[in-house]
């Protein structure tokens, strides 16, 4: 279980979050959507306990599996040595990871589809590969909660696809409470059960993806005309996707 309860955050006189409440139980996945500067990252930091709340409280296990957009890469470590850091909370100040911890790290890398480059140096990996290793590290914490900061935001389409497929797999396993922020509604359609829309005007909208991620809501959220389309994937499976109509719509 992870979430916020009546959380308010102010930066000076600007109210970034106002009595925001939501909670994600184990087995569900929540996507937090919103335009830039509407408090996605603030909400995420508040959940993780990195952001002081002016009112309200947070709801989180002691350790949360956190996947940052880009990990620190100024230290040249092997991917497996990065993943094994997930065990740090169990090991304590003077603890050293033993064979069991390294096995756990490798299992997490396997689950994240990153075992192939377990012995490669983290700072030499591509952005997509790094994010998989960071996901493995979050899984290695063994936390029942997983929080991802704009997964795939800096990745090309192929790597976004890989990451979202993986998130969807984790969602279907139903053994974690998953929260991720994103600015792309299609990410919510691909890998979330519920969505939280941080509206620019008025209170946030929260509910199942099918009810909340709809063109009228999204148009209010981003001020961009939107259409919901049904597509057939290469294997014939139907997909739902949101299409923003930027300048191209006028040209057509």
């Amino acid at each position: 279980m992870i979430g916020l309860n009546g959380a308010t955050v102010r930066f000076g006189s600007r109210v970034v979050l106002e009595t925001l409440s939501f909670s994600v139980p184990v087995g569900r996945s929540l996507a937090i959507l919103g335009p830039n500067g509407r408090g996605k990252t603030t909400a995420l930091c508040a959940m993780l306990g990195f952001q002081r709340l002016d009112a309200g409280s947070r709801l989180a296990p002691p350790i949360v599996g956190y996947v940052p957009q880009t990990g620190s890469s100024n230290q040249r470590l092997k991917a497996v040595d990065v993943a094994v850091m997930g065990c740090a909370a169990r090991l304590g100040l003077f603890g050293q990871p033993g064979p069991a911890d390294i096995d756990a790290a490798r299992a997490a890398l396997q689950r994240a589809g990153a075992l192939r480059f377990a012995d490669a140096f983290f700072d030499r990996l591509s952005g997509g590969e790094r994010q998989l290793v960071l996901l493995a590290r979050a899984l290695a914490t063994g936390s029942p909660a997983l929080v991802l900061d704009e997964p795939g935001a800096a990745l090309d389409l192929a790597n976004q696809q890989r990451l979202l497929a993986l998130l969807d797999e984790l969602r279907r396993a139903q053994d974690k409470a998953i929260v991720f922020t994103t600015h792309d509604p299609n990410h919510a359609l691909a890998a979330a059960d519920d969505a939280l829309l941080l509206m620019p005007d008025g209170p946030a909208l929260c509910g199942p993806v099918t009810e909340v991620v709809t063109p009228p809501h999204l148009e209010r959220l981003y001020s961009v005309p939107m259409r919901l389309v049904e597509l057939q994937g290469m294997s014939g499976t139907p997909h739902r996707a949101v299409l923003p109509a930027f300048a191209g719509a006028r040209a057509a």
Partner: peptide, 20 residues
């Protein structure tokens, strides 16, 4: 004794804190 912890302390603040 702190050798593994030093690897963690060398991470970004938020990453290190999220790992306990």
């Amino acid at each position: 004794g702190l050798r593994f912890r030093l690897n963690l302390l060398a991470l970004e603040e938020t990453e290190a804190r999220s790992l306990g």
